[in-house]
């Protein structure tokens, strides 16, 4: 768990701007600090919070916000399934509690660990908890100092979130056999995005297409190897 926490600390700076933005936007939408804490602490998924706040109304859009969270966070369902090698070692509240802390970057760090041959479920929880604590601190700072923190939306600092995932691709890369599925994922996601589909459809379509192509190739190769 300490290893996961340390790994997460290394990228907390990269996630800080996003938390600030959520705090600022929450304040702009009239959410009190307590309401901001509750949303960030319980939902803990930045993009869905941002989208929900974009369509925020008075009174609060209960159905709209719930549906937005469901659709945008649907990408986490395959993540949980892909973490089976470490989650299979957990039971009861440890299992379902660890899943509650699942976020994109903790997922990426843990997959890199699994690929390096380490299967430690505590790593996932440690990384998730550090990111959660960092999230709460940054959201609070954003809410309290909303008037001071005026980062324009196009500020390069927001590239940090994409850069985190880009850098994490390096340890996840297993060699040339990844090339075909990854290329397919990129092409399909781009096509879905170009067709005007909003989140999460480009991500889900691209990820499923790439993974299906890779699986089809692997199984056909395996069948041929068995026949020989």
């Amino acid at each position: 768990m300490a290893r996961g926490a340390r790994a997460a600390l290394a990228i907390t700076l990269a996630l800080a701007p996003f938390g600030l933005v959520i705090g600022v936007v929450s304040d702009a939408r009239g959410l009190s600090l307590l309401e901001t804490w509750l949303m960030s602490g319980l939902v803990f998924a930045g993009t869905s919070q941002l989208v929900a706040l974009e369509l925020w109304t008075e009174p609060a859009p209960i159905l709209g916000a719930t549906l937005a969270a469901l659709v945008i966070n649907l990408r986490m369902a395959p993540m949980g399934a892909a973490l089976a090698p470490v989650l299979d070692r957990l039971h009861g509240w440890r299992l379902w509690g660890t899943l509650a802390t699942l976020v994109d970057n903790a997922f990426a760090l843990t997959i890199a660990e699994i690929r390096a041959g380490r299967r430690d479920a505590g790593f996932l929880l440690g990384a998730g908890l550090v990111m959660w604590a960092n999230w709460m601190v940054m959201v609070t700072l954003g809410h309290v100092f909303a008037a001071l923190v005026r980062l324009p939306p196009g500020h390069p600092v927001f590239f940090a979130a994409a850069a985190t995932l880009l850098a994490l691709l390096v340890p996840i890369w297993r060699g040339r056999s990844d090339l075909l599925p990854w290329a397919a994922a990129g092409v399909v996601a781009l096509a879905a995005h170009g067709a005007g589909l909003g989140a999460p459809w480009p991500v889900l379509a691209g990820a499923c297409a790439g993974a299906a192509l890779g699986a089809a190739r692997d199984l056909r190769g395996g069948a041929r190897a068995r026949r020989r």
Partner: peptide
């Protein structure tokens, strides 16, 4: 088995599919 094989490929593909449009 097909789904099991897909799960091996999902992590990288999720991030690529997320990053490429951005």
């Amino acid at each position: 088995r097909f789904v099991e094989a897909m799960l091996q490929h999902l992590p990288g593909c999720i991030f690529i599919a997320f990053l490429v449009p951005t």
